Amino acid sequence: MTEEENTSGWDAIDHAIQQLYGEQEPKHYGTAIPYMLGGPDPLDGISAYAVDTPMPHWHFVTYGFSELYGKEGDDASRSGYGFELTFRLTRCENESEPPAWALNLLQNMGRYVFNSGNLFQPGDYLDANGPICLNSDTLLTALAFIEDPDLPELNTPNGSVQFIQMVGMTCRELEMIQSWNTRGFLAACESYMPKYVTDLMRNSYADIPSVIQATERGIEEDGSSTAFLFIQQLSWESPRKKLLQKNIPAKLQLGAQQATLLGSILGSRIAKKATLSLIGPDINIVFEAGDLPSLMETEREVRLTVNQQALNEIVEQLRPQASSFQIPSLDKLLIEIVPTQIKDQEGNVIKTIG
């Protein structure tokens, strides 16, 4: 970098980490060709620090979600997207370099944010739809996001930067998070996962009695924080399209993979008088609590008002297997559950649910 270049944002991050790790020289991986000039990696760099407590691990910190150089955005209070990602990964005793897959994972998070404009916040979660480390036997197929326990929010000349840590989660743990919330679930796991260090080879915490009890208690007290479920296998068939056929109910179709999860989240949302929106490719289905069950539809949205009776009629039938059943209290609404095919990156079916 030349003397003329303003690196105030980068320097502020360096200074914050120096307060934590002193003069330790990190393993730093920069980008040869900037993303704006056609390079493949959106982040300017990733640093990895070798940490020994509470267990040997790598502590990764990204450079690139925030404004590293001069101020360019209009929001003076926030630097760039307002955050940088961190990631803690167990480190073997003789490991001198961090694994390349972790660097690729962080760059993939950069591509997701830069291409979609969707930002990460503490409390978020993300289904990776496969192992977070490709071609590994890990059970970790999702990510949770929480404030980094050692790096507080930072004020820089370009605005504030929050350090958000990614945490590897299993499929069952993700379902518990969705049925409750990220912060509560991670707090319940903290004694087994200090500093939220990700261990690819660990077993699921979803089988630990104390975690199960904390989750069940949290769902009962707090309900679910999941207000939206994005479901690829979601469709709606209106009875208005069958004018020549009398007494034909509307039909809601969804994939078997989401059936059990939907029942769990829907029950806890409705219990707290909160809505749940199912977002599909062509239709949005909104469930809301009410005294009298009803069904209202527009071209892009269907609103289903459910009371306890209608809720029971729905939840009792939601299982991860192909089936169809009617909901008498909702104008005989027909719900059809169809098989879900899980495919690898090449498009090959590796598992069928339902």
Rank of each mutant, 00 (worst) to 15 (best):
Q257D: 14
G255W: 05
W236K: 08
S204F: 00
S238T: 15
L234W: 03
R240T: 10
T226F: 00
R217V: 12
I248N: 08
W236F: 04
R240C: 05
D222C: 04
I208D: 09
S225N: 08
Y205W: 05
E221V: 02
R217C: 12
Q245L: 05
Q233V: 02
P209A: 01
I208Y: 02
N203R: 11
A256G: 09
W236Q: 10
Q257Y: 09
Q258N: 15
A259S: 15
F228I: 03
A250K: 06
Q258V: 15
K251S: 09
Y205T: 07
Q213F: 01
G223Y: 00
K242I: 01
Q232T: 11
D207I: 03
K251T: 11
N203P: 14
Q245W: 06
I219G: 10
L261H: 11
A206Q: 12
Y205I: 03
N203Q: 13
W236S: 09
P249N: 03
Q253W: 06
Q253T: 14
E220V: 04
A259E: 15
T260I: 07
Q258D: 15
T215M: 02
L229M: 10
N247S: 07
K241V: 11
A214S: 15
L252C: 07
G223D: 09
K246G: 07
V211K: 06
I219D: 11
G255N: 12
D207K: 03
Q232I: 04
P249E: 02
L244H: 12
Q257N: 14
Q258S: 15
Q258R: 15
W236Y: 10
P209V: 01
I231C: 06
E220F: 02
V211A: 02
A259F: 08
T226A: 04
A206Y: 05
S224C: 02
A227D: 14
P249D: 03
G218T: 05
Q232L: 04
A259H: 12
D207P: 10
P209H: 00
D207Y: 00
L229I: 06
E220S: 09
W236M: 05
K241T: 14
A259L: 08
K246S: 09
E220G: 08
Q257V: 09
A227K: 10
N203T: 13
R240K: 10
V211M: 02
W236H: 07
I212F: 01
S235M: 07
S225M: 01
I231Y: 06
K241Q: 14
K246L: 04
Q257H: 11
D207V: 04
T215W: 01
I208G: 04
L243G: 12
Q213R: 08
Q213I: 04
S238G: 14
N203M: 06
A214G: 13
A256H: 06
L261Q: 13
Q253F: 03
I212Q: 10
G223F: 00
I212V: 07
I231H: 06
L243Y: 07
